[in-house]
Amino acid sequence: MKQVVVHPERCVGCMQCQVACAVAHSEAKQLVPAQFESPRPRPRIHVGAGPYNEGFPNRCRHCDPAPCLLACLPGAITRVAETATVMINVDTCINCASCAMACPFGVIRYHEDRSAQAGKTVAVKCDNCLARQREDGIPACVEACLSAALTFETLDAAYKRQTDAVARSVSAVAAAEALAPGWALLNAHKKARLELLTSPAPSDEKRAAGNAREDTHVRHD
C-alpha cells in the first residue's frame, strides 16, 4: 500500500500542493471554476514556515492510534484500515474542536465543506485523496510537487531510501556531494539573515535607537 511521504528538506515553499489539494476537493476539479464555488474549496495540506522561513508541508499523518479519533466526542472520526486513512464523518461531526486539542500536528481545520450539509461548519483534514486513488490517481499534493518533497510510495521504499541516505552520510566523500548547491546557498543566507533579526543589537547601537521623548508615556504595553 502506498502512502504519502513528506521530505521537508526538499520543500521549496511554492505552496502548489495547497492549491492542488483545494482544487482536488472542489466540485469542478479545475482551478479557475473552483475559486468561484461556495463554499470555497480549501486545502487540507498547509505549508508552514520553519525557523528561517523555509517551507514545511504539514499534513495529516493518519496516526495509529490516532489521538483525534480517541478524542472525538460524537465518534465521527474513524480509521479505514485498508488505506491507512483516518476519516472524519462530516454528518456526525459536531464542530466541538476536541480534535484540534488532540492533534499534535495541528492539521485539522474548521470550515464549511462541500461534502457537508450547507452552512454547517465541520472538522476537515486530509483524506489521502481516496476518491482520486479509487480512479487510479495519486494524491493531488504529490502530483503537484515538482521538487519531490511529497512522494507517494510504499513505506518500505521510503525506509530503504532513508536507510541508504544514512549510510551515504557515513561516507565523507558522499556527504560532500551537496544535494543542490544553489539551494544550500540560499538557505545558508536565509539562516544568517534570521540570526541577525533575532540577535540583540550591539550595545554601542544604543545611540542609534534614538531618544524617547520624556514627556511621552509609552501607552501600549
Partner: peptide, 21 residues
C-alpha cells in the same frame, strides 16, 4: 520569523510606533 518588535526595527521611533500601530 519575527519574535518581537525589536526583531523588526532598530530605531526607537520605529519600535514605539510599531507597537502603537
Amino acid at each position: 520569523m519575527y519574535d518581537t518588535i525589536k526583531d523588526k526595527t532598530l530605531p526607537q521611533d520605529g519600535q514605539l510606533l510599531l507597537k502603537k500601530a
